[in-house]
Design a protein around this nucleic acid. Structure first.
Lengths: 154, 154
DNA sequence: TGACAACAATTGTTAAAACAACTATTGTTT
DNA sequence: AAACAATAGTTGTTTTAACAATTGTTGTCA
């Protein structure tokens, strides 16, 4: 791709009437920018963001597992169709389902050893990637960014 | 929904081995959290995030419009299929396409008066929404957050 | 207890996104 | 000029996501 000319840069940075809107846009841009390499990495393991998210949640919920809707509730993004996400993981033998005996309405989902191995093998790669992605910010800036992101949700 | 118990809160806040990973996760969470009401608003106007994004880009590119791939290049998120996004906007009479005469490979896309009206009618609503969403941060914090988000992309 | 609301999950269907292969046009090279 | 590469967009196909309706089970309460 060509290097952008100054004029191009100016064109695409329209003036903002409102700081809040600028933050909202930069939040979306930065998230998209940083998430893409992550998705690419996950894809090599035949996972999507949500699928990986489920596995991480279940890894933290060992050994009892969790009901489907509890998983959905903990996801980063809202998922209106947790059933078929779990389906895909189950077909790949990364999780298994079991109907609860106390309350036969709930289906308890647990991560399998294969699933566990997959998440854990991804962990160091993601760690490296994230470290690499945030080199432009120093420790203090990272902490401040983190604090502001958390505060923005309240 | 029930109020979460302390135990629930503890369970879901796993310790982070690495600050960068924590920032990445909070970035994703905050973005998802703030974007959802926006999508809900857009949906009322039969628009998705990407469709609205295209309209805003084209509003800023009046009156000449832009080639399809130039639009794709300016989008917040990567879109591998700009053609059919533009298709949908064209069917709704919000944009129109025209084959360029200089270079017959390029298709120039322009926003229509209807499209313009739609984006502009959404503008104040989004403004209100974004203002409301960031009330937990003061001016200085918003500016700092914005600065860090921009810096994180370099 | 019987009726009914609430809840957990699934299924059917439609819409949207992702990916790859393809067409048409222009630029380049010898 | 002919051959070939590069570019802009489109089309076909497969996945994935979103929404609504449905099933089965449990809780409630008159």
């Amino acid at each position: 791709m060509m290097t952008k000319t100054l004029q191009d840069e100016i064109k695409r940075s329209r003036p903002f009437e409102c700081l809040e809107e600028e933050v909202a846009l930069n939040l979306a841009r930065t998230q998209a920018h940083l998430a893409e390499p992550v998705y690419k990495l996950l894809k090599q393991e035949k996972l999507s963001g949500p699928l990986h998210n489920i596995l991480r949640i279940l890894l933290g919920a060992e050994p009892d597992g969790l009901p489907s809707l509890e998983i959905a509730d903990r996801m980063v993004t809202r998922v209106p169709d947790i059933t078929r996400l779990v389906d895909r993981l189950e077909q790949a033998n990364l999780v298994k389902r079991e109907r609860s005996t106390e309350d036969r309405r709930v289906v308890r989902v647990r991560i399998t050893p294969e699933g566990k191995e997959k998440v854990e093998s991804l962990k160091p790669k993601l760690l490296d990637l994230h470290r690499d992605q945030f080199t432009s910010l120093n420790r203090k800036e990272l902490q401040e960014l983190n604090r502001l992101l958390v505060k923005a949700r309240r």
